[in-house]
Simulated assay, not measured.
Amino acid sequence: MTKRITISDVAIHAGVSKSTVSQYLNGRYDYMGQKTKEKIQSAIKELKYSPNMVARSLKQKSSTTIGVIVANILHVFSTQVIRAIEDFCHEKGFHVIVCNADDNPDKEKTYIDMLRAKQVDGIIAFPTGDNVALYQGLLEEQYPLVFMDRLVDGLDIPTVLLDNDKAATLAVDLLKDYQRPAIVTPPLKENLTPRMERLIGFKNELAKHGVSLPDEYIACGEISEIQKKLTELFQLTKAPDAIFAINDRVLHEVLTFMNHQHIRIPEDVALVNVDDVSFAEFYQPALTTISQPAFEMGKKAAELLFTQIKNPQDRSTMETFRFEPMVNRRKSC
């Protein structure tokens, strides 16, 4: 059987102490000479040394891993946030486990239990809002935890999300010259912060311009139902002349419907949505969107989590961080 290469073998081969090799492996080499680093790096390569991650985790009392629980990984916003978190963690020598909860509280709980069993050092979650007691228990343990995209009443957990009211205000500003604006959204639930805030903000901002948003101009349903809801919307005696699509998945359904029904954008109906999808610029016509600074938001969430990991007693970051949306003005309105 091939002998397992140990840290002692690396130290002997490099001509340095075990503690020096350990410092190198843990990234603590700010004051280490370049020649020493090169000798250790060469020894690791020549001996094909692979650190025993389990042993290191036990010794350091850290798994150098965090968990990210997203509501739905199909959203552009979710994938961009994950990428930013992964980039940040990679620089810190950490790994990321991504879990897709499908906005299902049972799946969310299962993933939290699994991540705790794997002893991850902290969790960034897009919470469903239905596992308050579970998260409260983690808070009481001073377990590192950050929420993304959604607020949960009664939980003092640092949260990173968009200024949804500002996003709605920007949408109204883009559509203020139209007479019959409508909004298209997935199911509206109190704990789904972005949807509720964007709807309320849109309705309130329209009112400031003397425009109402009757209930029949709110097309709301599961993604699989959006086509049916749009059919009902455009069968109204006075069909909408503008649409605010609340996110990227809704946008896909709206574009599909308009294409099938030969509805022209913006001649027949103006269109604006939240989330700057990859095809927005080359779609015909190019789509006016309101983008979220997803990469900055993901990085901020990771920074907040690492502050807690480093010092679980640090309560200075226990607040809500709102990020500014940005208009990408193109041709659809």
Rank of each mutant, 00 (worst) to 15 (best):
L192Y: 14
S212G: 06
P194I: 06
P194C: 06
K189G: 08
A182M: 07
H209N: 13
G201L: 09
I200S: 13
L213M: 08
E197G: 02
E205D: 10
K229A: 10
K203T: 08
R180G: 06
M196A: 09
N191M: 11
I223V: 09
I200N: 15
A219V: 05
S224F: 05
T185I: 15
K189C: 10
E222A: 03
K203R: 15
F202C: 02
P181A: 09
G221E: 03
K229L: 12
Q227K: 12
T185W: 01
E216K: 13
P214S: 07
I223D: 02
M196K: 12
E197K: 12
A207G: 06
E216R: 13
C220H: 05
T193Q: 11
I218W: 06
V211S: 08
K208I: 10
I226S: 03
F202Y: 07
A219R: 05
I226E: 07
P187V: 06
Y217W: 09
N204Y: 10
P187K: 05
D215R: 06
T185G: 07
P214L: 01
K208W: 02
E216G: 04
P214D: 01
L206G: 00
K189M: 13
P181M: 04
F202M: 00
C220M: 13
I200L: 15
E205I: 04
E222D: 14
R198S: 07
S212E: 13
A207C: 07
C220F: 00
T185V: 13
T185R: 05
G221T: 01
A219M: 03
S224K: 11
L206I: 03
G221M: 01
E216Y: 11
N191W: 11
P187A: 00
T193E: 08
A219P: 07
S224L: 05
H209P: 08
A182I: 01
E225P: 02
P186Y: 05
Q227E: 15
D215T: 11
V184R: 06
P214C: 02
G221V: 03
K203N: 01
E190N: 12
K189P: 07
K229I: 10
I183D: 02
A182S: 09
